[in-house]
Amino acid sequence: MSDRDRDPEGRARNARPRDALGRPLPHGAVGEPRAPEGVVREPARSLAEAQQLLDAGRPFHAHEVLEDAWKSCPDDERDLWRGLAQLAVGLTHAARGNATGAATLLGRGVRSLSPATDAAHRHGVDDVGLAAWATRLAAAAEAGRPLDLTPPRLTLGPAR
């Protein structure tokens, strides 16, 4: 019999609290509020929530929102949402000091976004700008240079 944390459907879920970068904390510790998993949101809401989390220094939690979109989107949008989730995880690794993980996930995100131009434009996602941002951050990580952890802007539009 497993003593792993499980959700109501019996799937393994780590119920330990997490810090702002998604690292598990000891049971009983006070952690960051977690985005509920499995929430189906309208694309604009997913992008807005993910942007708010990125701007608050919580890229791991932004990844969870984007992953929900990836799991519930139409087939022709999977590359877009997978790519955005991978970029958020890449930023998470960068913030945690894991340069190798950052470069790997950022590269995957860029590759996932590449075929997603139509879906990106449909939702106002700045796929070109995000790919450029991720490529710069991945190159800095691979070269051992200091990383600019300023979160990217997910959508086209007025500067924030």
Score class of each variant (00 low, 15 high):
residue 66 L to P: 03
residue 102 A to E: 06
residue 111 R to Y: 03
residue 139 A to S: 09
residue 136 R to T: 14
residue 32 E to T: 15
residue 21 L to E: 08
residue 36 P to W: 00
residue 2 S to I: 08
residue 160 R to Y: 10
residue 149 L to T: 03
residue 79 D to Y: 13
residue 91 L to W: 04
residue 148 D to V: 01
residue 99 A to N: 03
residue 30 V to D: 04
residue 77 E to D: 14
residue 54 L to T: 12
residue 52 Q to I: 12
residue 49 E to R: 09
residue 103 A to L: 05
residue 56 A to M: 10
residue 144 G to E: 03
residue 64 E to S: 04
residue 78 R to N: 01
residue 23 R to G: 02
residue 6 R to D: 01
residue 31 G to R: 00
residue 121 H to D: 14
residue 32 E to P: 10
residue 153 R to T: 13
residue 114 S to R: 10
residue 43 P to W: 10
residue 128 V to A: 14
residue 6 R to E: 08
residue 145 R to V: 02
residue 70 W to L: 06
residue 145 R to E: 15
residue 136 R to C: 09
residue 92 T to H: 02
residue 68 D to V: 09
residue 34 R to P: 01
residue 72 S to H: 11
residue 24 P to F: 10
residue 81 W to N: 04
residue 100 T to M: 11
residue 150 T to L: 07
residue 6 R to C: 06
residue 131 A to K: 13
residue 153 R to H: 13
residue 46 S to V: 10
residue 48 A to T: 14
residue 159 A to R: 12
residue 14 N to I: 03
residue 37 E to M: 00
residue 15 A to E: 04
residue 160 R to N: 05
residue 89 V to N: 10
residue 103 A to I: 09
residue 77 E to R: 12
residue 14 N to C: 08
residue 36 P to M: 07
residue 29 A to W: 05
residue 75 D to W: 12
residue 82 R to G: 01
residue 77 E to T: 12
residue 145 R to H: 14
residue 113 L to K: 06
residue 140 A to S: 15
residue 149 L to G: 03
residue 72 S to F: 08
residue 94 A to H: 06
residue 59 P to N: 06
residue 32 E to M: 14
residue 127 D to F: 05
residue 22 G to C: 11
residue 41 R to Q: 13
